[in-house]
Structures are given as structure tokens and as C-alpha cells.
């Protein structure tokens, strides 16, 4: 499904780039169809960077990202943007995930509009209503602004937006670390349910080993930019 081969990313800081931090150090990672791989590690271990590299939101310094047989590192702007519809990100902080000036409806409709997937306003509305029900929100939520929703509701809306494009692969970057425990349970259950229904592969980034054990088929432990252990 998706594969990262020899991925390396170095951040340089200081005036002359003298201080270098190796965020990801020649990592190989493979996630199969319908598989959930959990990436566990402390903050600063490079797990978030690795997730973003697989989505090509960050360009790796070395290595390749192969998605469905296509080397993403060789693609340019437009082609890459088209492939991106097949892979999505569920970010850590749902309160930051939406443009604060946009209503939830417009934010969820945005991917459809960018990729011109709905022929009419009516079709667009139909798709969004169906999705919003599937993630457990109500129609009234659509007309609100992000700051009027709770963290759990927002994270459901984030999931709805990611699903508009029928992705095959999602990176969930600590999707519940800012949420309450009972909300965490419902969000994670929701993600697992969609995986079964739609056949999505997940890279599930978390620092909670207990959570990883429940969610994942395989667990990778990351430390200092390297994958140091694997258990299934």
C-alpha cells in the first residue's frame, strides 16, 4: 500500500545551519492494505515528522515514499495534489484543524470544491449530510463556527472532512491526545469502524502504548528518529 524506504530528514538551525537535528534517520516503514500500524514514541522522537513525510507534507532529504507503486518523491505539484486525495491527515489538535473564519459546512465541503467532485450544490450537500451522520454529528453542527464546537465534535468533523475524498491511507497524528478519555474511546472506535467499512490503512501515531495495543495490528516503537522495536 504505502512504503517509506530509507527516509531521512535533518533540521538545521542556528545562523549557519551549524546545529543539525536528525528528526528521522533512515527509516523503512511499510503499511499494508487495511492494516493499522501504530507508531509509538515520546515527543521529539520524530514520529510526527515521519507521518508527515509519508503524506509528502514534508519533503524528505533522502529516501523514497512509494504509494500504490508510484514514487511520490518524484512527482511535481499538480500530480502530487491529485494523489493526496487518496491519503489524509487527522491532526492532533482538532481546535486548530479548521479555519476559524469558516463554518464547519464550508470546511468539510472544501475538498469537494477543490477537486470539483460535486456537480451541483445539491449533490455536495447530500454527500456532506451523509458523512456528518456517519461520524455521529447532527445537521445543526454544520452551521456553526469551530470555536462553538467541543473537541470531540470537532475531531468528528475532521474525520468527516478526511473521508470526503475516499482516502485509502490515513495518518492519525495523536488524534485523541487533546481529548477526554471517554471522547477518546468514541473517536478511536469511530476510526476503527470506518477502517472495517471502507478498507483504509492507518498509521496511528500515539504516545499511549495501551491505546496502541487496542488499535493496531503492528506496533512500531520510535526513538531518536529510528524505529527501535516492532511487536504485533
Amino acid at each position: 500500500m504505502i512504503e517509506g524506504i530509507g527516509i531521512r530528514k535533518v533540521y538545521k538551525s542556528g545562523i549557519f545551519g551549524g546545529k543539525a537535528v536528525v528528526a528521522v534517520d533512515r527509516v523503512d516503514i511499510r503499511i499494508g492494505e487495511c492494516e493499522t500500524v501504530a507508531l509509538v514514541g515520546e515527543s521529539g522522537s520524530g514520529k510526527s515528522t515521519l507521518g508527515r513525510i509519508l503524506l509528502m507534507l514534508i519533503k524528505p532529504d533522502e529516501g523514497r515514499v512509494v504509494f500504490d507503486g508510484i514514487d511520490l518523491t518524484k512527482l511535481k505539484g499538480k500530480e502530487l495534489r491529485r494523489i493526496r486525495t487518496k491519503m489524509q491527515l487527522i491532526p492532533q489538535n482538532p481546535e486548530e484543524a479548521f479555519d476559524p473564519r469558516w463554518k464547519i459546512y464550508d470546511s468539510i465541503a472544501e475538498p469537494l470544491r477543490i477537486h470539483k467532485l460535486a456537480d451541483s450544490r445539491k449533490e455536495e450537500e447530500g454527500v456532506i449530510l451523509e458523512l456528518i451522520k456517519a461520524v455521529g454529528l447532527k445537521e445543526e453542527h454544520l452551521d456553526r463556527y469551530p470555536h462553538e464546537l467541543s473537541g470531540g465534535e470537532l475531531q468528528r468533523a475532521v474525520i468527516a472532512r478526511a473521508l470526503t475524498l475516499n482516502p485509502k491511507f490515513m495518518v492519525c497524528d495523536e488524534p485523541t491526545s487533546m481529548l477526554d478519555i471517554s471522547t477518546q474511546a468514541s473517536i478511536v472506535r469511530l476510526l476503527m469502524e470506518f477502517q472495517k467499512k471502507l478498507g483504509i490503512s492507518y498509521l496511528f501515531i500515539t504516545h499511549d502504548l495501551e491505546l496502541a495495543k487496542v488499535v493496531a495490528d503492528r506496533i512500531l516503537v520510535m526513538k531518536n528518529g529510528k524505529i527501535v522495536a516492532e511487536q504485533s
Binding site: 470531540g152 465534535e153 471517554s182 474511546a185 495501551e210 491505546l211 487496542v214
Partner: peptide, 19 residues
Amino acid sequence: RGLLDSLPSRGLKPIKGFQ
């Protein structure tokens, strides 16, 4: 009970509905 059951180590069972 619901709160404890929603812990990953105790089954990750959500409480239905919203606060």
C-alpha cells in the same frame, strides 16, 4: 463505570452521547 470502561486497558468502550 463508563469512564473506566473507556480506558484503552479496560476495553476502550465509549459512553454513548455527548456531555
